[in-house]
Computed example of a mutant assay.
Amino acid sequence: MNVSIVVPTVGRSTLGRLLDALGPLPPEVELLVVEDTERRGPAWARNTGWRSANGEWVVFLDDDVIPGPGWYRRLVRDLDVRADVGAVQGRIRVPRPAGRRPTDWERVTIGLEDGAWLTADIAYRRPALAAAGGFDERFPRAFREDADLAYRVRRAGWRLLRGERTVTHPVRPESPWVSLRTQRGNADDALLRRLYGPRWRALLEIPPGRRGRHALITAAAAGALGAALLPGRWKWLAAGLAFAWAAGTAEFATARIAPGPADPAEVATMAVTSVLIPPLAVGHWLAGRWKWRAA
């Protein structure tokens, strides 16, 4: 089978672990590692890889996954499909922590197991990639660029399937404040909203998020601050809005703390970040709506 494997990387130490897990590949299999030294983004790196590849099938692997035993043998079976199938996704497994419930960041990674058309391990036919034009390099992060491509491939008339091969995706060590940084993805959501309209989540098979509630919480906080600056008769409004903000923030924090470990550091981090996430999410969304207003 004519297969090219493309691995985009930013130089993570996990790359060596991935290559070791792949083991010796058949001589006809092409392996391309694309190092994104200028941090142009994974969409750019994957486009560079598949456009340089020669395989009929192009398999994308993230540099932080570990292919399971017999991964290539199962890949060959997965790709024995009808000619109208444009992509076959592998299955992702995320190790759970031993002896405790997962943290917020660990639960985010565990959520990859149910994700649709993720490039952690997915094989595309070259004609399907060409028909869709490849990845949209306006997406600068490893976020939404894979769902966007999958939708355009389906829209071009190809079917997408799930295969049986597996990769393990360990939880990457991160700062306790990673949830604040990930709010930048709201700007990418704004691009999808501009491209595909209000039904973009349904079209791209993306679960509903919390941004609507974040907007209400942020509006209540802003309104409370504004009303507090008005004459005395408006103090009741300020108090009511402040209560709404506190209730919304408490609900959000509880939803994040309850399924996690009863660890004081984790609880404190969730409490602080639950205050900061709603305005950050809304701010990035609005910035994205402005940036992509003419997309």
Results as ranks from 00 to 15, higher is better:
Arg154His: 01
Trp177Pro: 08
Ala156Phe: 05
Ala187Tyr: 04
Gly163Arg: 11
Ala150Pro: 10
Asp188Met: 02
His169Gly: 01
Arg181Ala: 14
Tyr151Arg: 04
Pro176Leu: 09
Pro173Arg: 13
Glu145Pro: 02
Leu160Arg: 05
Trp158Glu: 03
Tyr151Leu: 05
Leu149Trp: 06
Arg184Lys: 07
Arg141Gly: 13
Leu192Thr: 00
His169Ala: 08
Gly185Arg: 04
Glu164Lys: 14
Val178Ile: 07
Pro173Asp: 11
Leu160Asp: 03
Leu149Cys: 10
Arg152Trp: 07
Val178Tyr: 04
Arg141Thr: 14
Thr168Gly: 08
Ala190Gly: 10
Gln183Lys: 06
Asp148Val: 05
Glu145Leu: 11
Tyr151His: 11
Tyr151Ala: 02
Arg159Asp: 03
Glu145Val: 08
Arg181Cys: 07
Pro173Glu: 11
Arg184Asp: 08
Thr182Ser: 06
Pro140Val: 09
Pro176Ala: 09
Arg141Trp: 13
Val167Thr: 07
Gln183Ile: 00
Leu161His: 04
Gly157Glu: 12
Ala187Thr: 05
Glu145Gly: 00
Ala147Asp: 09
Asn186Phe: 15
Leu191Trp: 03
Gly163Pro: 11
Val171Tyr: 04
Leu161Trp: 07
Val167Trp: 03
Pro176Phe: 05
Thr182Leu: 13
Phe139Ser: 05
Val167Phe: 05
Pro173Leu: 11
Tyr151Gln: 01
Leu191Asp: 03
Asp189Ala: 12
Val178Asn: 00
Pro140Ala: 13
Glu164Ser: 14
Gly157Lys: 11
Arg159Phe: 02
Trp177Leu: 15
Thr166Leu: 03
Ser179Leu: 11
Leu160Trp: 04
Ala142Asn: 10
Ala187Lys: 02
Arg172Glu: 12
Thr182His: 07
Glu145Asn: 08
Phe139Ile: 03
Gly163Trp: 05
Val171Gly: 05
Ser175Phe: 06
Val167Pro: 02
Gly163Asp: 09
Pro173Phe: 12
Pro140Arg: 14
Leu192Tyr: 00
Ala150His: 13
Glu174Cys: 10
Asp146Met: 06
Gly185Thr: 09
Trp177Asp: 14
Arg152Glu: 08
Ser179Arg: 10
Leu192Met: 06
Leu192Gly: 00
Ser179Gln: 15
Arg152Gly: 01
Glu174Met: 15
Ala190Val: 13
Tyr151Pro: 01
Arg184Pro: 01
Phe139Val: 01
Tyr151Ile: 01
Arg181Tyr: 09
Arg181Met: 14
Asp146Val: 06
Phe143Gln: 08
Trp177Phe: 15
Ala150Gln: 13
Ala142Tyr: 06
Asn186Thr: 05
Arg184Leu: 13
Thr166Met: 09
Val167Tyr: 01
Leu160Ser: 06
Ala150Tyr: 10
Arg155Phe: 11
Leu149Phe: 09
Ala156His: 14
Arg144Thr: 13
Arg154Met: 15
Arg141Ser: 14
Trp177Glu: 12
Pro176Ile: 13
Leu192Ser: 06
Pro140Gly: 10
Arg155His: 12
Tyr151Gly: 00
Asn186Gln: 15
Glu145Gln: 10
Arg159Leu: 04
Ser175Ala: 10
Arg184Gly: 12
Ala142Cys: 10
Val178Leu: 11
Val153Ile: 15
Ser179Val: 15
Arg159Val: 01
